[in-house]
Simulated assay, not measured.
Amino acid sequence: MVGRKVQRNVWMAIGFVLLLLIGVFYVLSNNQVKSEREKEIELNTANHNFEKVLAYENDYMGNASNMGNLFNNIPLSSYKDNIELDSDAFTFIINYDTTSDEEAEKAVIYNATAAFVLVKNLEVINMRFLNNSYVVTRENVEEWFGGDLKELIDPSMFKEKVQKPLLKSEINDWLASYTN
Rank of each mutant, 00 (worst) to 15 (best):
M127L: 15
M127N: 10
M127V: 11
R128E: 15
R128L: 15
F129P: 01
F129Y: 14
F129N: 00
L130Y: 10
L130K: 14
L130V: 15
L130F: 14
N131R: 06
N131H: 13
N131V: 03
N131P: 08
N131E: 08
N131I: 15
N132E: 09
N132S: 15
N132R: 13
N132G: 11
N132W: 03
N132I: 12
N132T: 10
S133L: 05
S133W: 01
Y134A: 02
Y134Q: 03
Y134M: 04
Y134D: 05
V135N: 08
V135C: 06
V136C: 07
V136H: 03
V136I: 15
T137S: 14
T137G: 00
T137R: 01
T137D: 07
T137V: 10
R138C: 03
R138L: 14
R138P: 01
R138H: 03
E139I: 09
E139G: 14
E139Q: 15
E139R: 01
N140L: 00
N140P: 00
N140T: 13
N140A: 13
V141T: 13
V141L: 07
V141F: 14
V141G: 03
E142F: 13
E142P: 07
E142A: 13
E142V: 13
E142D: 10
E143D: 15
E143V: 07
W144K: 13
W144G: 03
W144L: 07
F145M: 04
F145E: 13
F145T: 02
F145L: 00
F145P: 02
F145A: 01
F145S: 01
F145H: 02
F145N: 02
G146M: 10
G146T: 13
G146F: 03
G146N: 12
G146R: 10
G146H: 08
G146I: 08
G147K: 03
G147C: 12
D148F: 11
D148C: 11
D148I: 10
D148V: 12
D148S: 15
D148T: 12
L149C: 05
L149T: 14
L149H: 07
L149K: 02
L149W: 06
L149N: 00
K150H: 09
K150V: 09
K150S: 11
E151Y: 12
E151L: 11
E151K: 09
E151F: 01
E151C: 09
E151G: 08
E151A: 09
L152C: 08
L152A: 06
L152W: 00
L152K: 01
L152F: 05
L152P: 02
I153Y: 09
I153T: 11
I153M: 11
D154K: 02
D154G: 02
D154S: 03
P155C: 11
S156E: 06
S156H: 08
S156C: 00
S156Y: 01
M157D: 04
M157W: 02
M157P: 01
M157Q: 07
M157F: 11
M157H: 07
F158A: 02
F158M: 09
F158S: 00
F158H: 07
